[in-house]
Design a protein around this nucleic acid. Structure first.
Length: 800
RNA sequence: GCUGGAGUGGCGGAAUGGUAUACGCGGCGGACUCAAAAUCCGCUGUCCGCAAGGGCAUGAGGGUUCGACUCCCUCCUCCAGCACCA
């Protein structure tokens, strides 16, 4: 069988698309618009990865099909071009990040075009372009103006290798997500975005989204809403009165409290500490501070602490409770203090055992005798040893005890979130400068909108030292205060690159606008995004930040919607042929360029879609790719058998294919859509002749998957226009019905034979035909059927 | 520990509660060829049987149903994320 020359075919059609630009977005009627978005790539020197190809091909197929169905589709592409890798590379080699990035973008564009992706290249954008980051800065100032961006001194995560602070979201298991170095805590003044203001809305909004459950669960966990009671524990230290607020979700265990613990950094720790204990406290706190986040978690459950020598009073019983400091209590969560209930909390139990503190059981477990217990009981139960609350079950007791505390002014119901504000300052070079001027007189002064962008200077020594490189640029620092005109200095930190990517999908609909970040009417026309496809690694980073931006911009009157991405799908990882994650060190990386050269872009696209469900992880298998290429060659070969005659059998096959491909694309089931195209091709291959009209319709079906080959075949059929000007075919009911179907015959639910009958045969007729089968008779043995189930076109089940 | 997802041939995988294993890969046999590759045709879950046919198979065990990969309960394993969160 002749094989087609994919290099020639693909080159020719790509040249033609480049010239004719058929994919430029058409802004048509209201309500006819679709917005398909792929997560824009970071233009790394390594080039495009087969994982990129997977998500881009998937959305390209859907986009091409939607256009053939008459939709206007915005399908843009751009580059997340700021970031550490280019800067670190520059530190090593001296090549400027601007240069590295430019080269990488050129390479990415070339690679994407070689895949026949129908992006609208006229929308192309780069976050490192001053025309883009001008608006990143503008949005930052908008947030600043509305108190959603602020500067604060706080304990922050510091990566000693990358010499910069990191957001909580960028610390993975206590390590820097970029380089893996253990992160240390530093007390620094930094810029934050007030994402916590939207914690509740960001949580509630998830319910409305068509997103993978996994991603929604990760965001819910990350936001970490926790409802409970804040309880005041009062006490006196010498002549001073004090009050320690603690947060608990288990107010029902209040009568089991036997001590109080503060986080080592808690402001009250110093105040409450008696002189004899001070040295011990300072030593403990210094040790705790020196521990990295990593060490703290590794020492898990090995509890230690310092008794401060102070006592607080139980709010209901008045009992004296020793106050300790321990690093198992975190400053950053709740009130930074907890009530110790050893009987009903594992950590408190361990702590109480170590320091020999009383353990009082106040919640009876239904199936455990706590007199013998050597571990905490953390489940719900019936209260005891709890005065007036004895006999209540846990959830009632939480309510009643909270009410009692509230009435006495000793507590109140509160909600806490795990989510922290987003730290966006970075002490690095290759990012958007924070558009603030520092003036001796006026303090932090925003740069005026007309003076944006604050351009990133190119002549900077960007070696990271912990001090921001921009602080060392004389030209950058030469500035006057916008308010008073005095000599001032610029903010020298740049923004986290996740700020850049939190709004790029807004810019796409109007990328060259220099009046606003995007025209209001265009935003209304195209947004929100209908379908977003990308990797799952951004679950709590990009996807949460972008949602926050849209909620904020909505509040400030710039957007009509709150949720930017209505539907989201994550492509699964493509693993190496060995089933391991592809990596340079394992030597199992598949380079898409090699595949395109050897088998063609069409084969690569279809193979990646055929491997399995979009969202599953699946191993690469070059043999499978060969099979896909064989399919394309078969489709190509069929053009030599075109005839004018009718063929009802083929016509039925074709219409089933139309139906299956259409339905499967609606459900993003690319693998089964392709398998039905294969079935159709196999039928063509088996046939003597292939009617021309059927073949042409098949080529239209094939077009979104294999755009180059389909265009070529369309031309081979003598058509002068592009196959993509064709309407997407609709299956005809008439041809979907078979004249005869094979129906299963079961006796007592077991398969005993099959019969070929007309699909609309009545039950009586079908049963009569079934009973005539000799094998069926053997099992019925002349017994009277107790019950007969007939599913037309499917089966007859005779129950005896 | 918590959360989410998944367990089906030799492999990737397919199945609105209705003939489990579509499609692809691999394997076996055949055709073409001096030969090989490519291509084409046939077979290919497993066990018993010469065959007709039958038994057993969707991680394990129960249940609902005329009928369960699919629904319900219990358990096991794997993957991913989070994890001293009070």
């Amino acid at each position: 069988m002749a094989s087609y020359d994919h290099q020639k075919v693909e080159k020719e059609w790509q040249a033609r698309w480049e010239k004719e630009k058929p994919w430029v977005t058409r802004e048509g009627a209201e309500g006819n618009a679709l917005y398909h978005l792929v997560m824009f790539p970071y233009p790394s020197g390594a080039g495009l990865h087969v994982g990129h190809v997977e998500s881009y091909a998937a959305l390209d197929i859907l986009t091409r099909r939607a256009r053939m169905q008459g939709k206007d589709v915005l399908f843009p592409i751009g580059y997340d071009a700021f970031g550490l890798p280019a800067e670190n590379y520059a530190v090593k080699t001296g090549v400027h990040p601007a240069q590295t990035t430019k080269t990488a973008i050129a390479n990415f564009s070339k690679q994407m075009k070689s895949l026949g992706l129908s992006f609208d290249w006229s929308c192309e954008l780069s976050t490192a372009d001053p025309d883009y980051y001008r608006w990143t800065q503008w949005i930052f100032l908008l947030l600043y103006k509305h108190d959603l961006a602020y500067r604060a001194k706080a304990p922050v995560n510091w990566c000693p290798t990358d010499h910069t602070v990191l957001a909580n979201e960028q610390v993975v298991n206590g390590c820097c997500e970029r380089c893996g170095t253990a992160v240390v805590q530093k007390e620094l003044e930094q810029w934050f975005l007030r994402i916590t203001k939207y914690a509740d809305q960001l949580l509630a909004g998830l319910d409305r989204l068509d997103w993978p459950e996994r991603i929604k669960a990760m965001q819910r966990n990350w936001i970490g809403k926790s409802e409970g009671v804040e309880i005041e524990f009062h006490g006196t230290q010498g002549s001073n009165e004090f009050s320690i607020p603690v947060f608990t979700t288990r107010a029902d265990t209040l009568f089991g409290v036997s001590y109080i613990v503060l986080a080592p950094e808690h402001p009250l720790a110093d105040q409450l500490c008696i002189e004899e204990k001070r040295e011990e406290l300072v030593r403990y706190r210094d040790a705790a501070r020196k521990k990295s986040e990593l060490e703290r978690t590794q020492l898990e459950r090995d509890k230690s602490g310092v008794f401060l020598g102070a006592y607080a009073k139980h709010p209901l019983t008045g009992a004296d409770l020793a106050v300790y400091v321990s690093d198992y209590v975190l400053t950053s969560y709740g009130t930074g203090a907890v009530m110790g209930v050893p009987a009903h909390d594992e950590r408190d139990f361990a702590f109480a055992r170590k320091y020999d503190l009383p353990i009082t059981w106040v919640v009876a477990s239904p199936d455990q005798d706590d007199r013998m217990a050597d571990q905490a009981y953390t489940g719900p139960g019936t209260l005891k040893n709890s005065g007036a609350f004895d006999g209540l079950v846990s959830h009632e007791a939480v309510n009643d005890i909270a009410a009692e505390l509230e009435s006495k002014g000793k507590g109140r119901r509160v909600t806490f979130f795990r989510l922290r504000d987003w730290l966006v300052s970075r002490q690095r070079y290759w990012g958007a400068p924070i558009p603030i001027v520092w003036c001796e007189e006026c303090g932090a002064v925003p740069v005026e909108a007309k003076d944006l962008p604050v351009e990133l200077p190119m002549d900077v020594d960007f070696k990271p030292t912990g001090e921001s490189p921009l602080a060392r640029s004389a030209s950058f620092q030469k500035v006057k205060c916008p308010k008073c005109g005095a000599v001032a200095r610029r903010e020298s930190d740049t923004m986290d690159t996740f700020v850049d990517s939190s709004w790029y999908f807004l810019r796409y609909c109007d990328p060259r606008n220099d009046e606003v970040f995007a025209d209001e009417a265009k935003l209304r026309h195209w947004l929100p995004v209908d379908l977003y496809v990308g990797g799952a690694e951004h679950a709590v980073l990009h996807l949460l930040y972008s949602r926050f931006f849209c909620y904020a911009l909505h509040d400030l009157g710039y957007l009509e919607f709150e949720e930017p991405f209505l539907a989201l799908r994550n492509q699964g990882l493509i693993l190496g042929p060995d089933g391991e994650k592809m990596s340079k060190s394992k030597g199992n990386v598949v380079n898409p360029d090699d595949i395109v050269a050897e088998y063609g872009a069409d084969a690569l696209r279809i193979y990646e879609m055929f491997m399995g469900p979009l969202e599953d992880a699946k191993p690469w298998d070059t043999k499978g790719l060969v099979g896909v290429r064989r399919f394309l060659d078969k489709a190509w070969a069929a053009r030599e058998k075109l005839a004018g005659a009718k063929d009802h059998e083929l016509e039925r096959t074709l219409h089933k294919t139309i139906k299956k491909v259409s339905d499967d694309l609606d459900a993003l089931k690319f693998n089964t859509a392709i398998s039905s195209l294969m079935v159709c091709t196999n039928a063509f291959a088996a046939a003597e002749m292939v009617p021309r009209d059927l073949y042409e319709t098949f080529v239209v079906l094939l077009a979104p998957f294999a755009p180059h080959l389909a265009e070529e075949l369309w031309a081979e059929c003598g058509r002068k226009t592009s196959v993509f000007t064709q309407k997407w075919p609709v299956a005809s009911e008439h041809f979907l019905k078979d004249e005869k179907v094979t129906v299963a015959i079961q006796v007592n639910g077991k398969l005993r034979g099959t019969i070929d009958i007309a699909p609309d045969l009545t039950q009586d007729e079908a049963v009569a035909r079934a009973m005539a089968d000799t094998n069926v008779q053997k099992y019925v043995e002349g017994k009277e059927p107790r019950k007969v189930i007939y599913v037309p076109g499917r089966l007859v089940n005779i129950v005896v």
